[in-house]
Design a protein around this nucleic acid. Structure first.
Lengths: 233, 233
DNA sequence: ACCTGAACACCGTTCAAGT
DNA sequence: ACCTGAACACCGTTCAAGT
């Protein structure tokens, strides 16, 4: 409970919030049960007040989610700024992207809002800036730099979306773990005719039990080697 | 109106649907006014029947969206399969990815469902297969192939999400066009201290008025050059 | 300045009943 | 086999009123 209660002489209560407590409780709700759990009613209950109060702090649910996202991005930004710098800007870029990935792994609900709307998301803008600064150390045109950072952010967002989708209720319920879930897909794929689906059969064993971070690293590395080549050209 | 009306002797009507008409109308609704416009009530009205009828065809809204997505993927798959083959698998991969991008540009609402849940999305699986088959022509391990296709799909999905987000109501209303919208952001960025945000300032002019397809092409090319290097190693 | 209760206009989903 | 109306249990958002 982040809200405070004021007891006036009549014995009536009046909750008292703050932007900080609203966002902290919103994030807590999202962390505990994902995006569908964040409703104004649930949030108001946690804050110990009425639904309408929240509208004093945010104009809409969209803004609430934007601000909640930026709230957790503060920590990601701090992690990124705490990273040691190497003499290779591309290695630094990779380390930053991995830090971002880590943020999403811990909070899959970020998928839908991550790194968008830098209007409200001041920390996201700063993260964008830090990524971009690494490209300033590379021999590229402004346009290439713009595209490079977009590409890196794209890889991260792509993973964010994937992770945000992943838990199809059964996993959240604990009824099925990730391994079984992947295995079920793999089993369905194995039923496909291998003449019609040679590629699917080629990669079934890789898919079965794969780790998201490997997939992310591989995608990131392809982009970064492409970038390195571009900078050296 | 895709539903048909049967007139029985009492003069009462009874709508008659089909999976095909349900999906066609769902897609029409999505095309006309985006994801929020697709409600069971709106869809039922278009079909000329009751809300509950739709549940005979799909078990949930999620499934409806999955099937609607796969419905439009049929055309994308056909486009991809109609593509001429070159002797360079990476060029073919690029052409396929561009075809996918084109599908999303025409239907930004795809952002949230594109290429996920191949369970229900049979056409998405076939697209995945076609992309993957190009990697079979490259000298790679199964794992590298798996990661390569994931990366390419990731770039496309990343763009899909971006495009799906884009129209912030004002643009849909026609109150503001894309150029003005970008310009407003750019103007806000120009206000930032250039000592604190050197990168943002470096790329403002690139951002202002940029074209999404250039961004997509650039990200795709970085991934594909990375892939080419990997295959040649 | 900040909070409240109650209402409004929606949602997806279910179900017993109809044809 | 397929469709229906009406109900249920929610939503986000607004607003006049309170402190």
């Amino acid at each position: 409970m982040a809200g405070q209660q004021e007891r006036s002489r009549g014995g009536r209560r009046r909750a008292s919030h703050s932007m900080e407590s609203v966002l902290a409780e919103a994030v807590a709700l999202l962390d505990e049960a994902g995006a569908p759990a964040l409703t104004f009613r649930a949030l108001a209950q946690r804050l110990g007040g009425g639904v309408a109060s929240i509208y004093w702090y945010v104009a809409s649910k969209d803004e609430l989610l934007d601000r909640a996202t930026d709230h957790v991005m503060a920590a990601a930004l701090a992690d990124i700024e705490a990273l040691p710098h190497s003499d290779d800007p591309i290695d630094d870029l990779r380390a930053m992207a991995l830090t971002l990935f880590d943020t999403i792994v811990k909070r899959p609900w970020l998928g839908a809002y991550f790194m968008r709307n830098t209007d409200v998301q001041g920390n996201a803008l700063r993260v964008y800036e830090r990524l971009g600064e690494q490209t300033l150390r590379l021999d590229l045109t402004a346009r290439q730099r713009f595209h490079a950072v977009s590409a890196v952010v794209g890889v991260v967002v792509g993973s964010a979306v994937d992770l945000g989708q992943e838990p199809p209720q059964e996993i959240l319920d604990g009824a099925v773990n990730r391994e079984e879930f992947l295995g079920r897909y793999a089993a369905a794929w194995r039923e496909l005719d291998s003449a019609d689906f040679p590629f699917v059969h080629e990669i079934i064993d890789e898919f079965d039990g794969h780790d998201d971070i490997d997939q992310f690293r591989a995608a990131l590395d392809l982009t970064l080697t492409g970038l390195r080549l571009q900078a050296e050209a």
